[in-house]
Write a protein that binds this DNA or RNA. Structure first.
Lengths: 198, 198
DNA sequence: CAAATTCGTATCGTGCCGATACTAATGCGG
DNA sequence: CCGCATTAGTATCGGCACGATACGAATTTG
């Protein structure tokens, strides 16, 4: 007796891959004016969204799935172009902290490929978007776990996140107090909450 | 008064991008044994799924968002490795047709990254997957249109597709009769049906 | 049958990327 | 307080993806 395989997940995978290709193409176009490769823009985007635990070369390497040596070269180029700043960590002096320079922020604001996406999703109801989001999030989390790769995510759905007051949060893992905006950034020590699904 | 932007689409975008990165990382790992780059595996996967109108270098270039020159080199490498076969079209002798060699099929079967995906989506109900699929498809279609890029898709949701009988279909654009399995392949002249959404 | 168009290839330069080897800082066990 | 292992990052080199450009060949147009 043959095991019947559900084909629907594969259709979804195909869509994700195709969208990934398109976004990459989009990045290539956006960057060609400044002769930046997709990976450069991805790095800039990541740096703009990484929280205090995640704005390092190693975290970026994990995020992109590249080696730290490769990422080091990418960052060198971005630094030479004046798009990012690199500075030592005060406590652990091996660590390099990354942030966008004002030129980098300007560049990112001009070339944001998310505009095309905003436009492409304009006719999809918020409800369908939420559903798709939760399904993809689940796939992502499982994929990261199976992969033993670092898990990235924002505090909203992280186990460690505690709400102290209206505006103040706290990361139970690192012990720091976090502001509201900070809880919406990407974190490398993200741990997904087990969520109840209807 | 400030225009309030819905942030949910951006969250979805972030997920798609992250999943794209992960799949790319997965491809990089899969290919490293054979010292194949992600783009090589992507090409093989595409060729394995392209229908009779779409198994050409130009179509692959459109799909990947690369120039035909670049893709030509990629195909040269794959040919030298014995993973694909290239042969002239009978009618238009400028056109090159592509297909996997048996070695290519074997390689693809061994390194299929879709297994990880199958696994990652095992706990998501078919219904949620269908919903996510339809939402992403809509985003993809709009994105492709806005982009003026070629549109890729399978016959199931294509305007041109006609069902002649239980097992025989027909492409109204090209006029050919298509078998059931053929209607599940990727086509470059795909035209999305306008679908009724609840 | 020219001229324009389309599909594909050839070639060259830039620089991504991994592999390897290295330095420097931290942590660990005596 | 001193080796030893570990971790964060950099330097260097080779292979080759990728775009730009130029080209050849087949098709189409008139």
């Amino acid at each position: 007796m043959e095991e019947r395989l559900d084909k629907n997940p594969l259709v979804l995978l195909e869509l994700v891959e195709r969208l990934g290709n398109l976004m990459r193409t989009e990045l290539r176009k956006s960057g060609s004016d400044e002769s930046l490769q997709p990976v450069h823009l991805q790095a800039l985007i990541y740096i703009s969204k990484a929280n205090r635990y995640s704005n390092t070369p190693q975290a970026l390497a994990d995020y992109l799935g590249l080696t730290k040596g490769t990422v080091s070269q990418t960052l060198l180029l971005l630094d030479r172009r004046g798009l990012i700043e690199r500075f030592e960590d005060d406590i652990d002096r091996r660590v390099v902290r990354l942030r966008l320079s004002s030129a980098g922020e300007r560049l990112l604001a001009e070339t944001q490929p998310s505009l095309a996406w905003q436009n492409a999703t304009r006719n999809i109801s918020p409800n369908r978007i939420r559903n798709a989001t939760s399904a993809l999030r689940e796939a992502l989390i499982t994929l990261q776990e199976d992969n033993e790769s670092a898990t990235f995510g924002a505090c909203q759905t992280c186990t460690w996140c505690q709400k102290l007051s209206q505006r103040i949060y706290r990361c139970g893992r690192m012990g720091d107090r976090l502001s509201g905006p900070e809880t919406r950034k990407i974190c490398r020590i993200y741990q997904a909450k087990v969520e109840e699904v209807a």
